[in-house]
């Protein structure tokens, strides 16, 4: 009796031993990466409770006293804060404009590149168009100042010579928003074509031949063959962009912004930087960060569900 009970157990034990003997090095390799994720991505989540507590530099997050209004004091304070309301508005506004202008741009460019019959020229265009992606926003800001500054910028010098008034691209709020969006397109349009061009190569060439036989011209082919071929890619990227509608970049608005356009350039990420790291209001800015993270997750799920409702594959 005892032996029959023991036999399968020890066999599975032996199996585990031989499995570990064979693969223990895999676990050894994973130690550092997993430790990285636990320490730098999961342990910070423990600090999120600061959003509901009164921050104290001498206490651990667990010991800090609960904030007023059942812990929601700092969320209420955040929404009462004018800068924060502006930051939310600006984040939404800039992201929506990016979506409106920046999302279709690479699709159009990919279609154009796809129609180019000159192969070498196409390659050169691609290489040059990828270049801005490799520039930091600081560098782009430096270039922008040289190009668009009111008196010494190249564009305004040219305008001045032609007898026009200088245009304050960087210090008028409305113009700044336009500059911000266009610089975003400039920086990313080439790079973002990569994925569409890859999707284009998987379209069956027979479809084009069949369309040609039916007498379809260039535009009809784009409309009936190329764009349907890009549809899954477009939908996936659209879901991801919608999911990021309240997430905010830091580098771009921080580098491009200045005191005169604060009312439009201040986004959530820069708000957290000024109020948290420089202003030391940790509870308030943790609450803001939590709000942002939660909304981002909700938006991502919502966009995914919406896509699935329309019969698309979604991202999961």
């Amino acid at each position: 009796m005892a032996t029959t009970m023991l036999a399968p157990k020890s066999r599975s034990f032996q199996k585990t031993i031989s499995y570990l003997r064979k693969y223990w090095t895999l676990y050894l390799m994973l130690i550092l990466p997993i430790a990285f994720f636990v320490i730098f991505r999961y342990i910070p989540m423990m600090y999120i409770q600061i959003a509901f507590k009164r921050y104290s530099i001498v206490k651990s997050p667990w010991e800090m006293p609960l904030a007023n209004n059942h812990g929601f004091e700092y969320f209420i304070k955040a929404f009462a804060n004018r800068d924060f309301r502006f930051a939310v508005r600006n984040t939404l506004m800039l992201n929506l404009l990016d979506l409106l202008v920046g999302f279709p741009a690479p699709i159009i460019l990919a279609l154009l590149l796809n129609e180019l019959p000159f192969k070498r020229f196409k390659r050169v265009t691609q290489t040059v168009a990828y270049m801005p992606h490799f520039l930091s926003w600081i560098i782009i800001y430096g270039m922008t100042v040289h190009l668009l500054a009111p008196t010494s910028g190249l564009v305004n010098i040219v305008l001045g010579r032609l007898g026009f008034e200088p245009i304050p691209f960087l210090n008028n709020s409305t113009l700044w928003v336009g500059t911000y969006v266009l610089l975003g397109v400039w920086q990313s349009v080439g790079w973002n074509t990569i994925i569409y061009l890859a999707a284009l190569t998987s379209i069956n060439p027979e479809l084009y031949e069949a369309a040609a036989v039916d007498g379809a011209g260039r535009f009809r082919m784009i409309w009936h063959v190329t764009l349907p071929g890009l549809r899954p890619t477009i939908i996936t990227l659209l879901i991801l962009s919608l999911g990021r509608i309240l997430s905010s970049e830091f580098d771009r608005p921080y580098a491009l912004g200045n005191a005169l356009v604060n009312n439009v350039s201040n986004v959530i990420a820069t708000f957290v930087y000024t109020y948290g790291i420089r202003g030391l209001q940790f509870s308030l800015t943790t609450a803001v960060g939590l709000f942002q993270s939660v909304v981002c997750v909700v938006f991502l799920f919502a966009a995914d569900a919406l896509a699935k409702r329309f019969g698309e594959r979604g991202i999961w």
Binding site: Y47, V272, Y273, S293, V297
Partner: peptide, 22 residues
């Protein structure tokens, strides 16, 4: 388990200030 642990960090992050405090 490892995959889930890793992928989750793509969708939800603790935020700047908790990372700063850590």
């Amino acid at each position: 388990f490892f995959n889930t642990l890793i992928i989750l960090t793509m969708y939800f992050s603790a935020g700047t200030i908790p990372t700063y405090l850590l």
